[in-house]
Amino acid sequence: MQELVRELSTVFGPPGAEDAVRERIAHHVTPYADAVTIDAMGNLYALKRGDGSGRRIMLAAHMDEIGVIVTQVEEDGMLRFSGLGTLGRKMLLGQRVRFGNGAVGVISHNGGVKAEIVENETPDWPKWFIDMGVQGAAALPVGIGDVAVFDRPFVSLGRRALGGFDDRIGCAILVQLLRTLPASPHDLLFTFTVQEEVGVRGARVAAFGQDPEIGIAVDVTPAGDTPKQLTPAAVKLGHGPAIKIADAQMIAHPRLRRALIAAAQREGIPFQPEVLTFGSTDAAAIQAARAGVISGAVSVPCRYVHTTSEMIDFGDVEHAVALLTAFLTAEVDW
């Protein structure tokens, strides 16, 4: 599992340019799925048929990750950019970004050495730039509209790891589920979505097109167990996967929430209830598709979400696979 996470978490995939991620995942799921398809937006579907007695369940993890897009090229070769997905400007200074063609640059902001080292303020977006290390715009290997991701190598810390896990960890969980799941009564649609970070756009067309009865997003959720958190948050790293109650855009359906909790309790799997006051997941889009889909989410607690060093605990990841296995192999009793 660690190897799979290492592999998927380092593939290039900013919103709208998830092709490399899709190729890697398609490679992994094709031997285990009854059918693999891709829609015009780039969502990847791997269908695993049940025995006909169950429900039609969409499991969704998003392939895209936070990144940047070049908006202007200065004559001296510096690139101006804006964010793809929600980025904190505080994290940007000195970070390396990697483009699809492999070119690497470093982020800084207007003001020179003094501002970089002693400035207390966080500069506005237009003051930031990417330095590709070239002399003059003519030598640039990239241009306006090119997209890049942050350089986020996978680093194992033993039971925990650092890297870019939002939401390749969800992708890895779905791949692992598909590879290891015993017979399920349900038709399971493993859905790897695009453009979640820019407004759950892939999941919206995926759910409209596939019209599932039940939807479960698998994603990360911010952990609240670091010093002096401003708001109380109950989710801790290493205490089991989180079962979503509510976030800023949705409330998980009580039946699904209860069934997930019952599955965890039945199998003795640790879990934590999740209430998130900001952000959301693909489940918000799936829930509102057509006449409505009974939807919820299983989340992997994650520290430092949307930075270059997201931290997860593999115990939570394995328990998430176990929790979903327990839920998906049982009958749905409503």
Binding site: Q249, M250, I251, A284, Q287, A288, R290, A291, G292
Partner: peptide, 15 residues
């Protein structure tokens, strides 16, 4: 769902 995301209005209209 009106107070959060108009979930019922949207889905009932589709139904």
């Amino acid at each position: 769902g009106e107070e959060l995301n108009l979930l019922g209005a949207h889905t009932a209209s589709f139904r």
